[in-house]
Design a protein around this nucleic acid. Sequence first.
DNA 1: TCGAATCATTAACAGGAATTTAATAGACAA
DNA 2: TTGTCTATTAAATTCCTGTTAATGATTCGA
Lengths: 225, 225
Amino acid sequence: MSILIIEDEPKLAEFIRQGLEENGYSTEIALDGKLGLAKALESNFDLVILDVIIPEVSGIDVCKGIRAEKPNMPVIMLTALDTLSDKQRGFDAGADDYLVKPFEFRELLMRVKALTRRVSVSSLSSHVLKVKDLELDLDLKLARRGGKEIALTAKEYQLLEFLMRNKNRVLSRSEIATKVWEINFDTGTNIIDVYINFLRKKIDAGFDLKLIQTQIGMGYIFKDI
Amino acid sequence: MSILIIEDEPKLAEFIRQGLEENGYSTEIALDGKLGLAKALESNFDLVILDVIIPEVSGIDVCKGIRAEKPNMPVIMLTALDTLSDKQRGFDAGADDYLVKPFEFRELLMRVKALTRRVSVSSLSSHVLKVKDLELDLDLKLARRGGKEIALTAKEYQLLEFLMRNKNRVLSRSEIATKVWEINFDTGTNIIDVYINFLRKKIDAGFDLKLIQTQIGMGYIFKDI
DNA sequence: TCGAATCATTAACAGGAATTTAATAGACAA
DNA sequence: TTGTCTATTAAATTCCTGTTAATGATTCGA
C-alpha cells in the first residue's frame, strides 16, 4: 500500500512519512505542488496526503488535477485553516477527507486506514467475485455454482471475469474483443460466440436461471437482476 | 441517492433528514440499532449516518454488522465522544468518517458528498435518458414507461435513442436514414415508417400522451413539451 | 525431444429472429 | 373528391447466433 505525501515543510513531511512507514505503508514525498501532481498522475498511489498551502501549485489545484485524471484516488487534505468555507473549498476540489493542523498522528492514521480499507476490500482481500449464485475465485481461477467447482481455461476465465465485472450492462462484441482479446473486432471472427457457448455449457447448463443472456444485434449481458 | 439515518433522538434525526432532503437526497430514519441494522442490510442505501449511542444495538456493533455483509457501504459515525480512543473504536468498527457532536450541518453535508461522490462516479450512476415518463436505459438497452420494462430490438433501440437525443426537433426521414441506418434516403424504402410504427406499439400504445408525433410532409418529432 | 493432451481459433451450417420489402388501407390537404 | 402522404400488416429476405467439427498452437510429461 503506497502513499504520496505532498508537503513543503520537511519536518512535517518526515514526521508523517515515519509514522506511516512504521505502520507498514510505503511512502513518497513531494515538496511542492507541481512535483506532487506529476507524481500523483504518473504513479499509482493508493492514497495522497496533500497540504493545502504549498509552493508552485496550490493544494486545491493539485486535488482538482488528480480528480480530473484519477477520480477514484483517495485524497486527504491537510491544512491550518479551520473555517467551514476552507473545508468547503477542499471538499469541492474533490478531497475525501480534511484534517486541521495541528492533528494527532493517530487520527491521520485512522483516516488513512478508513480510506484505504475500501481499496484493500475491493481489490486485494476479497478474492472472489459473486453474482447471484455464481462465484468466481480470483485466486484459484475457477468458478463455483450450486456447490460445485467448475474448472475454466485461461480465456474462459478472462471472459467470465470481464462479464462479471461489467454485470448488468450489455457488452458489444467489439467491446469484448478489445478488452478480453485485445483485438479489433473487424476480422470476421466468431470467437466470442464460441467462448460464450463454452461458458454457457459450464456455468449455465442445468440451471433454470441463465446468467449469460443474448441481446440479439447488440451483444451479451450478464444479469444480476 | 438514498441515505439511512440511524439516530434515536427524534429532533436530531429530523434535522439531518430535512437538511439532506433539501439537498436532493432521499432519506429513511431508523430509531434504534436493531431496526437500523436490519434496514441497512435489506435495502441498498448509498450511505449510512449512524449515531454511536443508540438503543438495542450499539452503533459500533451496527457498523460491524454492516461491514460484514456490505463491505462497501459508506458509514459516517456521529457521536458526542471526542477522545481519540473513541474515534479509534469507530474506525476499527469500519466507519469511513467520524463526526463529533455538535457539528454544523454543512460539515456533515460535505462529508456525505465526499463519500457518495465515489459511488456516483463508478457504479451506481446508471446511464439513463429520460423524456417525460419514458426512460431509456443505456446499459440494459431497454425502455421503461409506466413502471414496465419494454424490450427493444437493436434497430428499435438505435432509432429511439436518436429520437430522444434529438427531442423537440422535427427529424426528416432522410436525416433519420443517414444517422440511424447509414443509408442515403433515395431508394423508395419505407423502413423508417415501419420502425416508427414498431416503436409506437411498444412505447406509446395505451398511453394518452403520444411521445412520437408525425409532422406530415416533414418527418417525425419526439415531444418533451 | 517427442508425442499426447489440452487449448485457441477458424469455418461451416442450421434455425430462428430481426430487418426489409411490398401491398393495402387509412388519413389528410388542396 | 382526388391525389399525396402515412399507417399497418404480412410475407420475403437477410442477418445473427448457437453449435459442432476441424485445424493449428501450446503445454506438459515421459
